[in-house]
Design a protein around this nucleic acid. Structure first.
Length: 576
RNA sequence: GGUGAGGUAGCUCAGCUGGUUAGAGCGCAGGACUCAUAAUCCUGAGGUCGAGAGUUCAAGUCUCUCUCUCACUACCA
């Protein structure tokens, strides 16, 4: 493990939309795994840059702002800070949490569009769109409602009827009205938009996706191939809105006929990955180009994207079309990690029906470590994963409190009581130490492999198994039994046990950073000794110097009681 | 409707290119221990791998049909 090459790694997680605080499923499906991965890679000595940002444009932001009485810009300022704070509460270790509304992203978006048009990948076309006279705005399909021509349902949305499920075109709705104001004064107008000619890129996209069949998860490639098989359609990348990136010509002036139009959020949102990196560079003096420009060192960067499955098409097809079509040496993603959904007792999260927990409330209920551990140990990697309070309780009580917390407590407090809180010398190697060494030699490399492969459930299970091995070792070594007749031999068990506490703290860092910090502080482990330079089980068992001071940390994990579950179910909904 | 993913012990899930008695954690039962957050450790019970058919010396693993669940279906993001 010692001769691993240090790599430069760029990590991005799908941009959370500006409206509202995200629920635990959003956290589990992109930001949290990206964070755990970034932390692990940093510990392994890699150069990691983890970038995320709020996705701020689009109709929903405009409407939400109007409801609060704030300007869109003020509203976004406020919500950006709220999301930033929520991320901080969950200890998301972004190197930079930017905004798609930043100057850098605006300029890049415009530059990409100009380059794409010069290369023939953008075309101006006319389409029909519903315009609401009362609202003085064009309405996205789902903001137009009316009677379903198929089943007669009276409040069918323009994109799909909630009653019969049929896909609709808003133009076909009978008696259409604006979902924003309820006004029936709506009309169909012709409007010009820029289209990204994804169809012309199909061949190159397919070749590129095919080369990754082996190293991308099946979830990722199957979705991309599905879209390609159905035939990529050209996609409008502008909208009739005022809040967003203006459409300009090469001279920087608004494009003729595009007054009152901006780029579609899904054109500029992924570009915000680059924009946010530039903003990071501006703020820190870092070099953004070595992460993004192939001609400036990005050939040596490994770029990994984290996202929910709904985002796969945009990251495997649309954004790559933008990158490839620009004809410029931009970095394409190397590896994608896509997640399924976390469901709420098998159903959907729903704010209106009080079903589900959102990041701001979740942190009031339980410490971030609890959520981080449970969501990663039960990550929706191969299929949707059901969240239940009972499972949450089991993860926290069994894995964190009983296996890890109790281990740390039992051996540190014993050391304080019997060995004056100092790592004791003495004793000889027994079967117990040999067993433990073999166990660590097998499990530590495997753990690292799981992290590198971004197999989160397996990495968590392996971590837990290592913690459990500590308890098993203590049972075998039984220092409390030896203490009665052979204090030196008891010292052996205590010393190795304390080394395990330090090791467990080191291993816990990417997942449960707060608890890890408490453990490492109680063990007085200096910063430079907290990295993942494992040199085999034997050295892990003898890392602490003799007489090194040790204290017993306060209870690390308070258990979740049945009463808590009842109260939370009452407050947030559950099986009922 | 189309497409994709999934249906493996009571629960949540592993099982790579098919190969001895199908695995883990939780839960459950019994035992051990007493340093510890009534914790921990050991042992055990529990599955005809959604249904049916086929290919093969051999299928949870490949093919087909059926069935159930979930997701996506391009102007929500």
């Amino acid at each position: 493990m010692s001769n691993r090459q240090n790599t430069r790694i760029l990590v991005t997680s799908a941009l959370p939309y500006i409206n509202g605080v995200k629920h635990m499923g959003n956290l589990a499906g992109s930001m949290l795994p990206a964070d755990v991965y970034s932390r692990a890679m940093r510990l392994l000595g890699h150069e990691v840059l983890y970038i995320c940002a709020t996705d701020e444009h689009g109709t929903p932001a405009e409407l939400a702002a109007a409801e609060t009485g704030l300007s869109v810009s003020e509203y976004c300022d406020k919500m950006h800070e709220a999301q930033k704070a929520a991320g901080a509460n969950f200890k998301l270790s972004y190197d930079y949490f930017g905004r798609s509304s930043s100057e850098a992203t605006h300029r890049l978006t415009q530059e990409f569009a100009i380059a794409l048009e010069a290369n023939g990948f953008i075309e101006e076309r006319t389409s029909q769109q519903v315009y609401s006279v009362a609202d003085r705005r064009y309405l996205p399909d789902r903001y137009v409602e009316g009677t379903c021509p198929n089943c007669g349902f009276e409040s069918a949305r323009g994109d799909q009827c909630d009653n019969c499920g049929k896909l609709l075109d808003p133009v076909d709705l009978i008696n259409p009205y604006s979902a924003v104001s309820g006004s029936h004064d709506v009309e169909i107008r012709d409007t010009n938009h820029l289209y990204l000619k994804q169809s012309d890129m199909s061949g190159r996209l397919r070749d590129w996706v095919e080369t990754h069949r082996a190293d991308w998860p099946a979830l990722t490639t199957s979705i991309a191939i599905k879209w390609l098989d159905e035939g990529l359609r050209d996609r409008a990348i502008t909208r009739d809105l005022s809040w967003g990136v203006p459409v300009v010509d090469a001279d920087g002036k608004v494009r003729a006929g595009f007054e009152g139009k901006v780029f579609y959020v899904w054109f500029d949102a992924p570009i915000a990955y680059i924009g946010a990196t530039r903003d990071w560079a501006k703020e820190t003096g870092g070099d953004w180009e070595k992460f993004w420009r192939l001609d400036k060192g990005a050939e040596d960067t490994r770029y990994i994207q984290f996202m929910g499955k709904d985002n796969v098409a945009f990251h495997t097809l649309s954004f790559p079309t933008t990158i490839m079509g620009s004809g410029q040496p931009w970095k394409l993603v190397d590896e994608l990690k896509a997640f399924n959904w976390v469901t709420w007792y098998g159903g959907k999260f729903s704010t209106s029906q009080k079903r589900g927990v959102f990041m701001d409330k979740a942190i009031d209920i339980a410490p971030s470590d609890y959520w981080r551990w449970h969501l990663m140990a039960n990550a929706p990697e191969s299929s949707d994963a059901a969240f239940t309070w009972e499972d949450f309780q089991a993860s926290v009580n069994s894995d964190l409190a009983n296996v890890l917390g109790n281990f740390v407590n039992r051996i540190t407090s014993y050391c304080v009581k019997k060995f004056d809180g100092a790592v004791p010398a003495g004793g000889s190697i027994t079967e117990a130490e040999k067993w433990l060494e073999a166990e660590l030699d097998e499990r530590l490399p495997r753990l690292v492999e799981f992290y590198e492969a971004r197999e989160f459930r397996k990495a968590m299970a392996e971590t837990r198994a290592i913690w459990a091995a500590g308890n098993e070792y203590l049972t075998q070594a039984a220092p409390w039994t030896h203490y009665k007749s052979d204090v030196d031999q008891a010292a052996m068990g205590v010393r190795v046990g304390l080394n395990l506490v330090a090791l467990f703290g080191v291993l816990a860092q990417p997942i449960i950073p707060d608890a890890a910090e408490k453990i490492l502080a109680a063990m007085s482990i200096p910063e430079e000794n907290r990295t993942w330079n494992f040199r085999g089980g034997e050295s892990c068992m003898n890392a602490l110097p003799i007489a090194h001071p040790v204290s017993a940390p306060p209870v690390l994990f308070t258990k979740i009681e049945a009463d808590d579950i009842d109260a939370w179910t009452e407050r947030f909904g559950g099986a009922g």
